[in-house]
């Protein structure tokens, strides 16, 4: 684990190796790289099972971010030579900047497939709230997409919107969830402006009126929840429901979305941020099985 405490809105980077598996035993080593706007993940699979992963910040330079994420996962793995990799798929916002990828696939397909893996085949609705987008996806029992939308035009409801807001209030992004429940009295109504720029001015007005920062956070988390729900509603909610992406870790928003969704969300021991890379690695594996892996 590495941690950077200098910039308070950052989250923690991590890498992991599956202690029950060895790369030497695998027939196919497939790799998925998800280069998002805020974070990048590399997932290394052995015959369709997760062997290791790395989850890092995306730097200003996408090709380096893809490389760094892969190196970080390889570091966890220890001694596997890189040319052992049979196929690699890049996905995410920066997918065209994965120089060592054999193919690119959109994050829509990868998130559905990844959610099917980490949450199981009963998942029908996947919500992914990333740094710069919101994805709402319906999929079948195989993780094939049946209906989707992706909103990456507007910052409202995205991780970036939350960062801008947390930054203005001087609250660390990891603390937003808990702090948004630490106010006295009734839950306030949602901030009425959807646009993040206008929501900031609205919040400045609420602070001036004497609202505690926690109460303003509560009102914004509620606005985020309503905004995100309005997008999920467009594709429709079918049971069972799962959430991936960084926002899944923010209970300030998640605890306020779930009553709107009206059903429980599936839980998983996996880090939800790796779903896209898991999906990419699974498509890599599927292509290896079809004989499309790199020639040895």
């Amino acid at each position: 684990m590495t941690e950077d405490k200098k910039e308070f809105w950052r989250w923690t980077e991590s890498n992991w190796k599956n202690p029950d598996m060895e790369w030497k035993d695998a027939q196919f080593i497939s790799v998925g790289i998800d280069v998002g706007s805020v974070s990048s993940q590399a997932v290394i699979m052995a015959d369709g099972q997760v062997l290791a992963y790395g989850n890092m910040r995306t730097g200003s330079d996408s090709p380096n971010s893809a490389r760094n994420a892969l190196n970080f996962a390889m570091e966890a793995l220890g001694d596997m030579p890189e040319d052992r990799m049979d196929y690699c798929i890049g996905t995410g916002y920066g997918r065209v900047n994965v120089p060592f990828a054999d193919r690119t696939i959109t994050e829509i397909a990868c998130h559905a497939r990844g959610a099917n893996f980490i949450y199981g085949p009963n998942v029908r609705t996947v919500l992914d709230v990333g740094g710069q987008d919101i994805k709402a996806i319906q999929c079948d029992e195989k993780g094939k997409v049946t209906n989707f939308l992706m909103n990456d035009k507007c910052a409202a409801g995205t991780g970036r919107g939350m960062e801008v807001f947390a930054d203005m209030l001087g609250v660390s992004i990891q603390e937003v969830g808990d702090r948004s429940f630490e106010f006295k009295g009734e839950e306030p109504p949602a901030v009425s402006s959807t646009c993040v720029v206008y929501a900031k001015s609205e919040a400045a007005g609420l602070l001036r009126m004497g609202w505690a920062r926690e109460k303003v956070l509560a009102a914004y988390c509620k606005a985020m929840a309503e905004r995100i729900y309005s997008l999920v509603e467009r594709v429709g909610v079918k049971s069972e429901f799962a959430v991936t992406g960084g926002m899944a870790k923010n209970r300030g928003v998640m605890d306020r979305i779930m009553p709107l969704i009206g059903m429980d969300r599936l839980t998983t021991p996996w880090d939800t941020q790796i779903a896209g890379a898991v999906g990419a690695a699974l498509f890599s594996h599927a292509l290896c099985m079809k004989g499309k892996g790199r020639k040895k």
Binding site: S60, Q132, K153, C154, A155, R160, G161, V164, C195, V196, V197
Partner: peptide, 16 residues
């Protein structure tokens, strides 16, 4: 970027 928030990051990128 078609959003004021995202455009700000784009402007910072141009400055860099």
């Amino acid at each position: 970027a078609q959003c004021a928030i995202f455009a700000e990051s784009e402007v910072v990128g141009l400055i860099h």
